[in-house]
């Protein structure tokens, strides 16, 4: 059973996109922990730790990813959770993809990504791990 935490760090005003992803993953047979809006990096990593998820899927629309994502990845490493797959979606300019991947994000999914691509990507990567 693949377990995923769908999390929304920062101050985004709505979570429609995150909910669409959560439902798509559920419909693909995954267990999705959803924690709602306005999560701090500390809350997100702590939830991922307690829930022992295979995948952390972050959704950020606000443009705050250059500060939020490195902080989240720092907490992931200091908690020795490097085996967790971290994905990023929302509104991430093409120019930022490389720096996000350097920070430790496995894959950035831009707006308009087919949810089935995310499902397939997770399936491939998580079965590699287990």
């Amino acid at each position: 059973m693949i377990r995923v935490l769908v999390a929304k760090p920062g101050l985004d005003g709505h979570d429609r996109g995150a909910k669409v992803i959560a439902r798509a993953l559920r419909d693909a047979g995954m267990e999705v922990v959803y924690t709602g809006l306005h999560q701090t990096p500390e809350q997100i990593v702590d939830a991922a730790l307690q829930e022992d998820v295979d995948v952390l899927a972050l959704s950020i629309l606000s443009g705050a990813h250059p500060t939020l994502v490195p902080r989240i990845m720092e907490l992931v490493r200091s908690n020795h959770m490097d085996d967790m797959l971290v994905l990023l979606g929302g509104i991430i300019p093409d120019d930022d993809v490389e720096s996000m991947e350097q920070a430790g994000v496995a894959r950035v999914f831009g707006p308009g990504t087919d949810t089935q691509d995310i499902v397939q990507y997770i399936r491939e990567r998580v079965s590699e791990h287990e």
């Binding site: 999705v32 922990v33 809350q43």
Partner: peptide, 14 residues
Amino acid sequence: FSGGAILGDRIRMQ
């Protein structure tokens, strides 16, 4: 149907 689940109880427990 899918065997998946959305687990949302944490939202109220932050």
